[in-house]
């Protein structure tokens, strides 16, 4: 996925001289996850550069540049470190178009690695997506394959509005099915790992059906698409797994069509439960599919506690928890 993201930035730097990449350690070194490796060398320091350690400054500069027509695509080293920039993102970038009655706009992308599963403790593991999906004026994207990562990042950079681009770091190097002691798999052996050369984009706002089924709809995104898949395989239940990809706007049509077909729904996310995206998804399904439902909609999420270090695998939603929830949804 790292190469796919780099490729997307490479394509856009090449196509559009207004595209700029900056953030902490992204220039000479190419980012702590290597997502921007080689880009400074190829495009020069005026296009790809290192910034001081100040996320508010990174996004604030991007807002100023974007308002003038540049296309900044900035990196926040970990989603856990975005909070100094929260003001710039939610109160400024998100609203400049609206408050100026379209006189100014803010086409910028904030990329950041998100989620757990890497023994990163509480400041390298959080999943703050719902803190952004709660904000009018933002788009929020979270891909789960290299193919999608490239297509969606290109779409995000081309988008006329600010896009929060969350990268599930547990699957940077390959899909993860929830068993941390299992053999690690690379993207090379996965169909989603195939990334075409050159420019292509995937529309923001479209979900993808990862597995077709008739018994129950599983709504997931990022790493959880794979963990849910592992659980579904274990149960043998004919579940339909929808990878949301775009968390704001949501592809309600795809979700609705699926739940109308299956009559059952389970939501899975790593983020904490209370007021998480699951709550929004369940409300949406309830409003649009109530008369089709055979069972209460359940969710499997991270616990409502800070992300632990040693007890990581008791926190991370496991295939076992998802399996249990699947049976529960099916029984009702």
């Amino acid at each position: 996925m790292i190469e796919a993201l780099r490729d997307a930035m490479d394509v856009m730097l090449d196509r559009d001289p207004k595209v700029l990449i900056f953030g902490e350690d992204v220039g000479y070194f190419g980012g702590v996850f290597r997502c921007t490796a080689g880009l400074q060398k190829k495009y020069g320091e005026e296009r790809v550069f290192d910034t001081p350690i100040n996320e508010s400054a990174i996004v604030g500069m991007a807002v100023g540049m974007a308002a003038q027509g540049m296309r900044p695509c900035v990196e926040v080293q970990f989603a856990d470190y975005v909070f100094p920039a929260y003001d710039q993102i939610t109160q400024e970038a998100a609203r400049i178009r609206h408050r100026s009655n379209q006189m100014f706009s803010c086409p910028l992308v904030v990329r950041m690695p998100t989620g757990g599963g890497i023994f990163g403790g509480q400041t390298h593991s959080q999943s703050p997506e719902s803190l952004f999906t709660h904000v009018a004026g933002l788009k929020v994207v979270l891909p789960s394959t290299p193919y999608d990562a490239k297509g969606l990042l290109i779409a995000a950079i081309e988008d006329p509005d600010p896009v929060i681009f969350l990268e599930p770091k547990r699957i940077y190097n390959g899909p993860f099915y929830g068993n941390h002691t299992g053999k690690s798999v690379t993207w090379a052996s996965h169909p989603g790992g195939e990334v075409p050369e050159g420019h292509y984009s995937i529309p923001i706002g479209k979900a993808d059906i990862r597995r077709e089924g008739t018994a129950v709809t599983v709504l997931a995104y990022g790493t959880m698409v794979y963990v849910a898949d592992a659980a579904v395989e274990q149960t043998g239940i004919d579940a339909e797994i929808i990878d949301l990809r775009s968390l704001l706007p949501l592809d309600v049509d795809t979700i609705r069509a699926s739940v109308e077909k299956t009559g059952r729904c389970l939501v899975v996310h790593e983020a904490t439960r209370t007021s998480g995206l699951g709550a929004e998804l369940i409300a949406e399904v309830q409003e649009s599919c109530f008369w089709h439902l055979h069972a209460p909609i359940l969710r499997v999420t991270g616990w409502d506690a800070p992300y632990p270090h040693a007890a990581e695998w008791d926190y991370f939603p496991s295939p076992a928890r998802i399996t249990r929830a699947l049976h529960q949804v099916m029984e009702a």
């Binding site: 403790g121 509480q122 800070p306 632990p308 040693a310």
Partner: peptide, 11 residues
């Protein structure tokens, strides 16, 4: 570990 495994090493 007095922090019972909550924090990353050295914190």
């Amino acid at each position: 570990d007095p922090l019972e495994g909550r924090q990353l090493p050295v914190l």
